[in-house]
Amino acid sequence: MALQHIKIGDWLTILFGCIGVVMLTLKLWNGELADKALIRSGGKIFREVPLSNNQNIEVRGPLGISIITIQNRKARIASDPSPRQYCVRQGWLQQAGEIALCLPNQVSVEMIGSKKQYDSLNY
């Protein structure tokens, strides 16, 4: 085995390397949990609701009513009149920066954390 050639400083380097990689991974991969949900209708901000209260919110769009459910610090679009139901199938949103769009009914829910994160939509 080649292990006997590793000197004490090398072990320290490996150790600090491991710690560094783990910290980097935790920092970069664990997205921040959202505090608020921003609901837009027809491009305008409809309501900004905190995730602390469990509630159902009805938003009227050109096709009908979309129902947004907030429960256990998560949010989802529970029902929507859009034909393909993409935003409903997206399911629960929890992390800051996540977004569900119901384009036909012009309704969207965006999760907001304490600071704005960049993604391909708002970059």
Partner: peptide
């Protein structure tokens, strides 16, 4: 004495 090629490499 304490650091070898492994450290350099990393």
């Amino acid at each position: 004495r304490w650091f070898g090629a492994v450290s350099h490499s990393i």
